[in-house]
């Protein structure tokens, strides 16, 4: 369970806080979508769960405390000097065969797995990021605009993978597209 308890948070040198006394609960499994107008703090919500930001007041409680989160960032954040496969091997303790198998399932075939991020399209990079997150075998999956740049076929495959993961563990999804929100089991409005 992930609980936001009266969380107040603001970035340094800004007058108004992003959140003031925010409380929310995310169930142990299923997909939770976070919706809000642009610039209201959807990504910050994920960053607080990932531990990249600390609340100014209140708390973000994660049970168990040692739960590992994987974050699919909006900006993808792949190591530009590594291939798709190497990007996964750099952070995940998996074999090349397992990494290659998941990449193939997500539509990144053997011909693309040895290519660097700069040689892949935006949608391909997005799927490499998702593969990296899933193969990390996290306890929580955080997704920031995970379907951007994906065509409908690849989107379906990715949704299927996320749903499979969400059967046993929590997925927190942030998106500004209504279609993306439809896959959620719970919606939190900020």
């Amino acid at each position: 369970m992930i609980s936001f308890k009266n969380v107040t948070f603001g970035y340094p040198n800004t007058e108004t806080p992003v959140f003031e006394n925010l409380s929310a609960e995310i169930p142990d499994s299923g997909i939770t979508a976070v919706i809000a107008p642009s610039g209201v703090g959807k990504t910050t919500f994920l960053r607080l769960i990932a531990g990249l930001e600390k609340p100014d007041a209140g708390s973000v409680e994660i049970t168990p405390k040692e739960a590992r989160a994987a974050f699919v960032f909006q900006e993808q954040r792949l190591l530009p000097w590594y291939s798709a496969l190497e990007n996964i091997r750099a952070v995940c303790s998996v074999s090349d065969a397992d990494a290659a198998a998941l990449l193939t399932e997500l539509g990144i075939g053997a011909d693309l797995q040895g290519k660097r991020p700069s040689e892949l399209s935006g949608g391909q990079r997005q799927r490499v990021c998702l593969a990296r997150a899933l193969l990390f075998n996290p306890d929580i999956l955080l997704l920031d605009e995970p379907f951007s740049g994906l065509d409908s076929e690849n989107r379906e495959t990715v949704v299927e993978k996320i749903r499979e993961f969400a059967k046993t563990r929590p997925v927190v999804l942030v998106s500004h597209i209504n279609e993306d929100i439809k896959i959620a089991d719970k919606v939190i409005e900020l």
Binding site: A50, G51, L52, R68, A69, A70, F71, F73, E75, R77, L79, Y82, A90, V91, C92, R132, F136
Partner: peptide
């Protein structure tokens, strides 16, 4: 951004230096 990614994915200091 890459350092933040490394933090989230728990990359060791040696792995951060290398990668």
């Amino acid at each position: 951004d890459l350092l933040e990614m490394a933090q989230v994915y728990g990359m060791s200091p040696a792995a951060r230096i290398r990668s």
